[in-house]
Lab assay of single mutants.
Amino acid sequence: ATNIVSKVKWYNSTKNFGFIEQDNGGKDVFVHKSAVDAAGLHSLEEGQDVIFDLEEKQGKAYAVNLRIK
């Protein structure tokens, strides 16, 4: 899926990962520091509106092509 609009559930800049809620009630989506860095960001804030693409690797959903709404 591409261009999903949602909100950051939480992000831990010390552990370099977090999760984004899915508005459709699906499972929370993992977001890694590499996606945050690629977006030119230093961190994410809880409740922040984001747009991302969903990529599945080894049966897990990852946020990629992250951008701020």
Rank of each mutant, 00 (worst) to 15 (best):
N65A: 04
K33T: 04
K9T: 02
V31F: 11
D37R: 14
E46T: 15
Y11L: 00
S6K: 04
V64K: 08
N16K: 14
N16L: 07
L54K: 07
Q58I: 07
D53P: 00
T14W: 12
E21N: 11
K57F: 13
K69A: 13
E21G: 13
S34T: 12
V50I: 14
K15T: 07
I51L: 09
S34L: 11
K60V: 08
Q48P: 01
E56W: 15
E46R: 15
A35P: 01
L41D: 03
H32W: 03
G18R: 01
H32I: 03
D49A: 14
K60W: 10
S43L: 11
F19I: 04
N12S: 14
V29A: 05
L44V: 04
A39M: 06
D23T: 15
R67Y: 05
H42R: 13
R67H: 07
D23C: 15
L41K: 05
K69W: 14
V8M: 03
V8Y: 01
E56H: 13
N3K: 06
T14D: 12
A38Y: 08
K9Q: 03
K9P: 01
L54I: 15
F30L: 04
V8Q: 01
K15S: 08
A63Q: 02
F52P: 00
Q22C: 14
V5Q: 12
D37K: 14
W10Q: 02
H42P: 12
V5F: 10
I68E: 07
N16W: 08
K15H: 08
S34A: 09
N12F: 07
K7H: 09
F19N: 01
V31K: 00
L41Q: 06
D28H: 06
S13C: 12
F19P: 01
S34I: 10
V29H: 08
S34K: 10
G26I: 09
I51M: 12
D37E: 14
K69D: 11
N3G: 11
G26L: 11
A61L: 14
Y11N: 00
V31E: 00
I68V: 13
L44I: 08
K57D: 09
V50H: 00
K9G: 03
G26C: 11
I4H: 07
Y62G: 03
N24Y: 11
Q22G: 15
G40K: 08
D28E: 07
D23N: 14
L44G: 00
K60F: 11
V5S: 12
G40N: 09
K33V: 08
S6N: 06
G47V: 02
F17E: 02
K69M: 14
K15D: 04
K9N: 02
S43D: 11
I51R: 04
E45G: 09
K7L: 05
T14H: 12
E46K: 15
K57Y: 14
V50W: 01
S6F: 06
Q22R: 14
G18K: 01
E21I: 15
V8P: 02
T2K: 14
N16R: 15
